[in-house]
Structure formats: C-alpha cells, structure tokens
C-alpha cells in the first residue's frame, strides 16, 4: 500500500516538474490582411492562415491603426447575411496589443461577413468585411469522422447486449 502511494506521489511530482518548462505558446503569425473602415477608424483584419476553410481553426487579429487604447466595440459574424455569433471585441490572448479571436474556426463554408461596431475618442463607427469566402472543410467527410469516433460507444453497446443476454435471472 505504502509503495503504491509512493509510486503515485512520484508520478504526480514528475508530471508537475515536467509541465512548467514545456509550456511554449505559438506566436500569432499573420499571413494575410484585409482593411475595414469602421466610421473614423481604420481596422486591419489579420488571418493566421489563408484561405480560410470551414472548421479549420486560426488566429484572427483586429487592429485599429492608432491602437486599441480608449476604444471598445462588438464583433458580429454573419453567414449569408444572417447573424450567427456576436461578442465584445477582446484582446487576443497571445497578442495583447490588438483585439482578436484565438484558434477560432468558422463553422460553415460559404460567404461570411464580419461586422465591427467600434466606439472610441473619435465617436462611434460601423464597418464590415464583406464576402469573406470560407472554403469547404478539409479532411474526410464528417459522417466518417463521427463513425470512427463513436466506435467505443458501439463497443459498449455490444458489451451491454452480451451482458443482457447472459443475465436474464434476477440476483437478490
């Protein structure tokens, strides 16, 4: 028992020791930019991969020309003209000097619009990045991916069926 506990404590200590130095987060590499005019504000929208594909995650950056200090705003994402998601413009966790979305994936292919409502010292303004083309998802069709991923569930169901057939009597 004591040996087991010592072994467990050793494993946890080893894990704790290894965890800290190996934390190195990827920098945000912008490979493509688009310009948006939101009233008095010039926004540069950056993408860490281009072209954008459905379900493939990337970093988005939204940088006003004279910085984000003293400004706030809202980002609305529209798919074929219908709003799908909105939220306040927040600083990118790995690039704190600009707003952004970290490892965010567009859920559907098609034509998307990013609408920016920005408020700041020069007043309020709205601008849109229209016709953001999101390509089809990469990789196998989702049906196949789900079939592979739910094998444990069907294995469990098979086990239950076998156990069901072998346990027809009730045990007190």
């Amino acid at each position: 028992m004591r040996r087991t506990l010592l072994g467990l404590a050793g494993t946890v200590a080893l894990l704790l020791g290894l965890a800290t130095p190996s934390l190195a987060f990827e920098p945000v590499n912008v490979v493509h930019t688009e310009k948006v005019q939101a009233g008095p504000y010039d926004l540069t929208v950056g993408f860490s991969t281009w072209p954008v594909k459905a379900m493939q995650s990337l970093d988005f950056t939204f940088a006003p020309e004279d910085g984000i200090a003293g400004k706030k705003g809202t980002l609305t994402m529209l798919h074929s003209g219908v709003a799908q998601d909105d939220g306040p413009l927040a600083r990118h966790p790995r690039k704190r000097e600009v707003w952004g979305l970290d490892i965010h994936a567009m859920p559907e292919p098609g034509t998307w619009t990013l609408r920016f409502d920005v408020e700041g010292p020069a007043g309020a303004g709205t601008g849109e990045l229209k016709n953001l083309q999101v390509m089809e998802q990469p990789g196998p069709p989702m049906g196949l991916s789900w079939a592979i991923s739910t094998i444990p569930l069907f294995g469990l169901i098979a086990l239950i069926v076998i156990a069901w057939r072998r346990t027809r009597t009730t045990v007190e």
């Binding site: 379900m55 493939q56 995650s57 994936a105 990789g139 991923s149 739910t150 469990l156």
Partner: peptide
C-alpha cells in the same frame, strides 16, 4: 492527426474529442 489538419482548435465536441471522452467513459 485531427489537430494537424484542423489546427489546435479548442472545440470540446470535435469527433476525436468525443472519441477520447467515450474512451475515458469506458
């Protein structure tokens, strides 16, 4: 493999994540 293709997405309900969660459930 999925992350190599789709990036380091933080989506809890991606097919491989559900596969991992089902494995732990077993």
């Amino acid at each position: 493999w999925w992350h190599g293709l789709y990036g380091f997405d933080a989506v809890i309900d991606s097919p491989p994540h559900i596969g991992l969660l089902l494995s732990i459930s077993i």
